[in-house]
Each structure stands twice: as C-alpha cells, then as structure tokens.
C-alpha cells in the first residue's frame, strides 16, 4: 500500500507543478455551471412553462450542481496518459516498477484529483445550497450518495483504463478518446438528465454502465429512488466494478504481451 501511495504523492505534485494551469482547471466547475444556467434559462423562457419533464428551473440547476460534484470524483485522464506512454514507449517505467500496472494509474489519478476536489467540493455545495435551492435530503441519502460516487469513480476509471489500454493494440487512440468522451457525456447524463430520453432508450441504458457515472448517483442524492431501489442500483454498480476490473486486469496482462512491438 505504501508503495502505491508514492504514486499518489507523485500525481499530487504533478498536478501542482503548473500553478496557472491548476488554477484555470479549478474554473471548470463554475464555468460549466454558468453555461448550463443560461442555457436552461433560455429554454425555460422559450417554453413559457415552469416545469419541463418534471424539473423546475431550480431543480434543473441543482441537478447540474450535483452532476459537477460527481464529475469531480470521476474526472479521469488515464487514457491520455496511456496514449502518450505507449506511443513514446515510456510505459516501460510502469512495467519496471514492482507494482500492479492498473493500480499505478489509479493512484496517480487520485493524486492528481485530490487537491482540486478538496478545493472545489465545499464551494460547489455552497453554491448549490445558497443560490439554486439545493436541499439536503437526509443523512441516509447522503451516505448512499457517497458510496455511489466512489463506485462511479471506479466505473469511470475502469472504462477509461480500458480505452487507454487499447493503445497497446492501436498505438494511437486520440480519436477513440474523443468519441468515448462524447459517449460518456451523452449517456451518463452529464449533458442532459437521462429522463429526457424516450422510455425505451432509458430501458437500454439500464443495461449499460454509463448511467451509473452521473445520473444514478445524482438521483440517489435527490432521493428519487426508494431505499430498495437505491440498494439495487448500488448492487449493480458493485457488479459493474467487479466485471470491469476482471476485464481490465486481463487486458493489462495481454497488453504487456503485446508491448513487444512498441519502440524496438
């Protein structure tokens, strides 16, 4: 464990190495919120109604505030690192450490995310409570929400890792990363709440891991599910984590075998 913490510390220092970029990165949350604020303001004004698809303007912005909070924890850059590491051959450094390949990336990512989460988390909650009428739905929901965020983080990590590891077969995956980001933005509910989609498509989403990245954790916080439903969702998330981990674990072993071709 101590060995992996070393990578966490490294990622933490890396994140702080360029202070301008770090500060600009912190602006991502408020800027996105402002964009969605004005976007939905325009939509509501155009529609002339107070409620769209069950959301009032306030609950809609509240959704995005919570979505941004989940997003802080599920921000993953490991596919980009792998793209670069594999293409340049620097990935040998990861293979040279006496550590699990996948976990090295996980801990480095945690190190990278830690400080920005620490700085943005409370202000974002405060913005939600003070300006958009976000409410606290009780400790039980909050605990469920916290668990779901942790599981969402693992799901996003593993899918990002899956895409990143494909670099060993495809060498360049920049196009794939863009498509993946688009898919996740659309299918996770970070662009629009998934309840906006037709019923049949929502049924399909239930069998995909994407809705668990944003939509489900946000709904858990908002108390939309009953306790049983929440537990069911959490159970499905655990299942996804296990399945994806097993997959990525073997994929990383195959990647090592595949590596021979990179940079003779």
């Amino acid at each position: 464990m101590g060995s992996y913490l070393a990578l966490l510390k490294g990622g933490y220092k890396e994140a702080l190495q360029y202070r301008f970029d770090f500060v600009v990165g912190l602006l991502r949350v408020p800027l996105t919120l402002i964009i969605f604020y004005f976007l939905w303001k325009a939509v509501f004004a155009f529609n002339g109604t107070d409620v769209i698809n069950g959301y009032t303007f306030e609950t809609m912005i509240g959704y995005y505030v919570l979505s941004m909070i989940v997003g802080m924890f599920t921000w993953m850059d490991v596919d980009n690192w792998l793209r670069w590491d594999v293409k340049s051959g620097e990935v040998v450094s990861e293979f040279m450490r006496p550590l699990n390949f996948v976990f090295q990336y996980l801990f480095r990512q945690w190190g990278m995310s830690t400080l920005s989460i620490f700085i943005s988390l409370v202000p974002t909650f405060l913005i939600g409570y003070l300006f958009v009428g976000l409410m606290f739905f009780g400790w039980l929901n909050f605990v469920f929400f916290t668990i779901s965020v942790v599981l969402a983080m693992f799901i996003v990590f593993l899918i990002t890792m899956f895409i990143g590891l494909l670099a060993f077969w495809l060498t360049d995956i920049s196009g794939l990363i863009k498509v993946k980001n688009m898919f996740i933005a659309f299918l996770s509910g970070s662009l629009v709440p998934l309840s906006f989609f037709p019923g049949i498509i929502q049924k399909v989403f239930a069998f995909l891991p994407f809705q668990y990245m944003r939509y489900v954790p946000v709904n858990i916080y908002l108390g939309i599910y009953s306790v049983n439903e929440t537990l069911f969702h959490l159970g499905v998330m655990v299942l996804w984590v296990v399945v994806l981990y097993i997959f990525v674990h073997y994929q990383s072993k195959l990647a090592l075998k595949k590596m021979s071709g990179v940079g003779i």
């Binding site: 060995s3 913490l5 070393a6 510390k9 490294g10 051959g89 040998v92 450094s93 940079g263």
Partner: peptide, 25 residues
C-alpha cells in the same frame, strides 16, 4: 534505457528518488 525518459518529466529528480524509496520500501 538511454532512449527513454524514465523520470517524472514535470518533477525534480529528487521526487522520483523519494518515490522509488517508497516503491521499493
């Protein structure tokens, strides 16, 4: 590997050394 970087590019070398201390305990 003479042709590879191996150290953490954005960090001072001393950070890589201390990381190795923990990695190899």
């Amino acid at each position: 590997l003479g042709q590879k970087e191996q150290l953490w590019w954005d960090l001072p070398a001393i950070d890589t050394f201390y990381m190795n201390r923990e990695v190899y305990q």
